[in-house]
Write a protein that binds this DNA or RNA. Sequence first.
DNA 1: GCATAATTCATCCATATGGTTGAACGAGAA
DNA 2: TTCTCGTTCAACCATATGGATGAATTATGC
Lengths: 113, 113
Amino acid sequence: MVERESTPLTDILKAASDPTRRAILTLLAQDGPTRVTEIAARFEMSLNAVSKHIKVLEAAGLVSRRTAWREHIIEVRMEPLAEIDRWFRELRSIWEMRLDALNSLLTEENDND
Amino acid sequence: MVERESTPLTDILKAASDPTRRAILTLLAQDGPTRVTEIAARFEMSLNAVSKHIKVLEAAGLVSRRTAWREHIIEVRMEPLAEIDRWFRELRSIWEMRLDALNSLLTEENDND
DNA sequence: GCATAATTCATCCATATGGTTGAACGAGAA
DNA sequence: TTCTCGTTCAACCATATGGATGAATTATGC
């Protein structure tokens, strides 16, 4: 398979596209900074599986980790989600520009009637 | 592996998380409804690969297909992207509610000083 | 030093994903 | 009928992903 550049946006969307990971984000948003073990306790899967999910979120910048003693405190970070919003807005504006161009073209034609 | 429910949001995020698919969406937003072959011509991969990407986008509702004779005209659909925005907003509001609660707790404590 | 606790690391497994190539299909054109 | 065109379907392959389990790590408490 060809080498694929991993843009931040791709990582963010990939990270957010898993239901378990979204649930983790929701949990963190509700409860605030939480230990890995405590997060894992909320899910019916192994601690290790949750730990891996958290690492994916961390790599995408969606959570940050603060190691206090032997506990790793995980905290949600909202900023990267704005990237998604930015992409969405850009796509929409491209789309609207085309529609505007179409409209003005039609108006011009009407003027020439 | 356990059976995983496929929510619309999961499908939308998964579909949007691939750079090629986002490029297809951008292209469609710019150029408007386009034939499959024509879309494929813009990418350095086989027609079949692009066709598969389009099917993923279609399953997520991000594009619609209009079969005109033997040509399949693909069109971008913006509506499902609002789902992402909705999720984002919900997460943020949960997050802000917690912060507000925290703040009012602190204020209360200050009042009691 | 030794047990304990919170995590990660290392393996392994099954399935999903993104890509390729070649065959099949459906419908107008010769 | 047979050819051609636009597209999907069917295999197939390599790698990624999500999960499990057991060992290793790291730092305190006894």
